[in-house]
Amino acid sequence: MTVELDSTIGRMIRRRGAYANSSTKFKVGSCIGALLVLLAAGNQLFGSAGEVDIASKRLPPLTDGHLLGTDHLGRDLLSRLLASMGWSFSIALLAAVISLTIGTTVGVLAASSTKIGRTILTRYIDLSISFPELILAVTIIAVIGRGFLPLTLTLGFVSWPHLARVVYAQTLGLWTREFVLAAKLSGVRPMRIILSHILPGLRNTLLVMFAFIFADLLVAESGLSFLGIGALLGDPSLGNMLADGRRFIFSSSLLMLLPCIAVILAVTSANLIGDGLSSRSKNATR
């Protein structure tokens, strides 16, 4: 959580010792995250998503060369899990990039424009934030259809207002800093100031927000796929795996537990990275 992130409102925290913790958080988070991403990417490059073979469905672990057994359609569970991680992570990552792009643009524009523009944009951001995103996402997906691309676009499109609000607050603060004021007084054009001073100043915030958005979008993707309105038939998705696996929770527990653990690990590691980064950037600003 980026509670401590805000430099315009919150006071500086003068806590000693607590930051040893934050750097550990970052390290642990990045280790788990890197491991998960490497596994998923490795499978994407060299492995497979598992072939359907209904005659050997729901095999227990360590049978017929299946390390973790097979799923309800006879696909190798390990391959399936890694492929799903790749699929779900990619969606969350791409959607987070979209969200970051729109959010930063709107936030910076809002903070840098005239009073009227600012009012309109901030009102717009406030309104969007107050509307439950999942409700919007569900409706949009119903219209544009399911699958990788629609899901990515929808999630990116509904999640940016929060980011825009943070960016807006940060940018407002940056515009009052001496080096920006100096540039402004010496007649540098606003667009240039934004590119050369504001955006670099936002870097840390954006990194932190990226981690948090990724975590949230991963949960959202698996939730939508779980409800049957995200991934398509046969798409490897953590949400799909959960929805399929829940039917066998006692007879073949791994089918549900593994994707469950994968989601929790990924989300927690992203949250850890974000937390660690945010404390770190605060140390730097101090």
């Binding site: 509670v3 992130l5 805000d6 509904v158 980011l163 943070v166 927000m209 949230d216 949960v219 959202a220």
Partner: peptide
């Protein structure tokens, strides 16, 4: 899906 920026209003 909500982000963690709440306090930053």
């Amino acid at each position: 899906m909500t982000l963690h920026s709440e306090k930053l209003s």
